[in-house]
Computed example of a mutant assay.
Amino acid sequence: MSIPFADRLLRWFDQHGRKDLPWQHPREPYRVWLSEIMLQQTQVATVIPYFHRFLERFPTVRSLAEAPVDDVLQRWAGLGYYARARNLHRCAQTVMQQHGGQWPRDIDAMVALPGIGRSTAAAILSQAFGDRHAILDGNVKRVLARHAGIAGYPGLPAVQQKLWRVSESHLPQARLADYTQAIMDLGAAICTSRKPLCGSCPVSEDCVARRENRIAELPGPKPRKVRPQRASWLLLIENERGDLLLERRPPSGIWGSLWCPPVVELADDWRSALQERYGLQVGQPETLAAVHHAFTHYDLELRPLRVRLAKGARIADASVAWTTMRDPDALPGLPAPVRKLVEAAYFSTPDLLSL
């Protein structure tokens, strides 16, 4: 009789798995939850410094729940996918308000929390409490699709259902926290999307993809769509002191609730937009180099215009703020591409510091 999948994987993990990640010591619910949200669509190496900085500012779920959302977004700036940060804040508040600051052990109650899906809930419960739940993140989908020979794009409901069944069938009776980390590590280090290290894989002997020479075709690719291309004006509006106008983005959509210079669709008249929003009239702008940013579903070109307000012009609107351009550390939580652009425009050369 062959050795069970989980036993082989755990033996491999004991020798090669990651056991020194910061959220593993201690492996308690708040830290595990925070890491799982940060790791959604973000690599471990990128997450680790953010994780440490986040814990310094928000060491407990209570401290996170009680913090202003601006503080949360500022600490998150640069990680992208800002809905995660907003959901993180809402989730902490929900845990405090509905669960008395204790994380629920029931998976349905965990899934009901903001920003937590089935796989994330299972990862938290298995790693923080050792509960017996299967996960199905991107790495695990790839491992199981290849090992079980499941064709099709894993995002399709029918394919995903098959993968869930396989994932549940491999669960061991013990060491659930280690097993969950092990199968994620296997996908990250061995069963990679390109050039997998099949010779080092502990479960390769009964891997369908390897046996049938289908490694390159499994899992099935996402059906291709033409990526939409969008372009917008980014208006760097300065007052007589050289301070920069920022406005809070709407709660939904890109960069939700972050502070940002006004953005106007390229097809719209930006002068009319400024007049309509704030009653502002400005002179001839200075055109700066365009920047490009790729989102999940489309590409965005930002075309910055630097404009000065007439002396004495004022804006009375609680949704806008002026920020100094004398100290880059004083900038609030800006979207990462906007921060890079602003820092390049205002802090890259000494003469610009005198604005």
Rank of each mutant, 00 (worst) to 15 (best):
A83Q: 14
W103T: 00
N139I: 09
R165I: 10
S169R: 03
T42F: 12
A148D: 10
L73K: 07
W76G: 13
D71T: 09
G149K: 02
R53V: 12
V159F: 02
L163W: 04
V61A: 04
Q127S: 12
A134R: 03
L144K: 00
A92V: 04
A158G: 09
T60C: 02
Q160S: 13
Q160W: 00
Q74P: 08
C91P: 01
R84W: 12
L39S: 14
V140F: 04
N87K: 07
Q74Y: 09
A128P: 06
V95Y: 02
V95M: 04
G117F: 03
S167W: 11
I37G: 01
S35V: 06
R62D: 06
A67M: 10
A112K: 05
S169I: 00
V166P: 03
L39M: 15
R118E: 14
A109P: 09
H133T: 09
G152F: 08
A77G: 13
G78P: 08
H147T: 15
R86W: 08
L136W: 05
R90V: 11
A134N: 06
Q40E: 09
I135M: 02
H89K: 07
W33L: 10
G100I: 04
G152Y: 09
Q161L: 14
G130T: 00
H99I: 11
L64H: 01
S126Y: 01
G152K: 08
D137G: 03
W76I: 12
I124K: 00
V166A: 06
L73F: 08
D131L: 14
L163Y: 08
D70W: 05
H170K: 15
L144Q: 00
G80Q: 10
A92M: 00
I37F: 02
V72L: 10
T46Y: 08
P157D: 14
L125T: 05
G117T: 05
A45I: 15
Q74T: 13
R86V: 13
V32F: 11
T42D: 13
S126E: 02
R75H: 14
G152A: 11
R62P: 03
Q127K: 12
L156G: 12
G101Y: 10
A145C: 14
L79Q: 05
L125V: 07
H170P: 04
I37C: 02
L39V: 10
A122P: 04
H147D: 13
V72N: 10
V143I: 11
F51L: 14
G152P: 09
H89E: 08
L64G: 03
R84T: 12
D106C: 09
N139G: 08
Q93I: 07
V159N: 07
I135L: 05
R90A: 15
G117A: 04
R165V: 12
V69R: 11
H133R: 07
D71G: 10
L156Y: 12
E66K: 01
